[in-house]
Simulated assay, not measured.
Amino acid sequence: MEILEYTIQINASPEKVWTVLWDDFSYRQWTSAFTEGSFYIGTWEQDSIVKFFDPNNNGMYSRVLKNDPSKEMTFLHLGEIFDGVEVPQDWGDATESYILEETEEGTKLVARIKTSEEFKSFFEDKFPVALQNVKNLAENQL
């Protein structure tokens, strides 16, 4: 497993950034960097299962390991979804964390992903765009 980390400074409060990350409407906007039409089903409650989908009913499912509002959200990735069917994967401790830290300028957002080599280039290509989307939404939404 490799740990990848992406950081962006956002001129908005942690509460605003948090809302952009996890509100259904804005979630669909910023995650379009990964796949156009991305959405989720489930809740962000700790220990709940969230399913992440593309428009073709494919994606992955994860357990919410930590939900500390306006501070940190961490997922443990459990498996993939093919045509709506969950397929468990042996990804070990593949996690994805979003850490928000209040700064004088607003919020430092850190995305930390523990992943296998097979997904590294995808994340390196997509995550900077996704975080820029979060920044644009948080700084420009009314």
Rank of each mutant, 00 (worst) to 15 (best):
E2T: 08
E2K: 11
T7E: 14
T7L: 10
Q9H: 14
A12K: 00
P14W: 06
P14H: 06
V20T: 04
V20S: 01
V20K: 02
V20A: 06
L21T: 05
D23S: 12
F25V: 09
Y27W: 12
R28I: 00
R28C: 07
Q29Y: 11
Q29I: 13
W30R: 03
S32L: 02
S32V: 00
F34P: 02
F34S: 00
G42R: 03
Q46H: 11
D47G: 06
I49Q: 03
I49K: 03
F52R: 01
F52W: 15
P55Q: 03
P55M: 04
P55K: 05
N56P: 07
N56E: 14
N58F: 08
G59E: 05
G59V: 02
G59Q: 05
Y61W: 09
Y61T: 01
Y61Q: 01
Y61E: 01
V64N: 03
L65G: 01
N67E: 15
N67H: 15
S70A: 15
K71W: 07
E72C: 13
E72L: 13
T74G: 06
F75L: 11
L76Q: 00
L76E: 01
H77E: 07
L78R: 04
G79C: 10
E80L: 10
E80F: 10
I81V: 15
F82S: 12
G84A: 01
V87S: 02
P88W: 05
Q89A: 12
Q89H: 11
W91H: 02
W91F: 12
W91P: 03
A94L: 03
T95G: 06
S97P: 11
S97F: 09
Y98E: 00
L100V: 10
E102L: 09
T103D: 14
T103F: 14
T103R: 10
E104Q: 06
E105H: 12
G106C: 07
L109C: 08
R112F: 12
I113G: 09
I113A: 06
K114E: 08
K114H: 10
S116T: 05
S116A: 05
F119C: 00
F123D: 07
E124K: 09
E124T: 08
D125M: 14
K126D: 03
L131M: 08
L131G: 04
N133S: 15
N133K: 13
L137E: 04
A138K: 01
A138P: 12
E139L: 06
N140R: 07
Q141K: 02
Q141C: 09
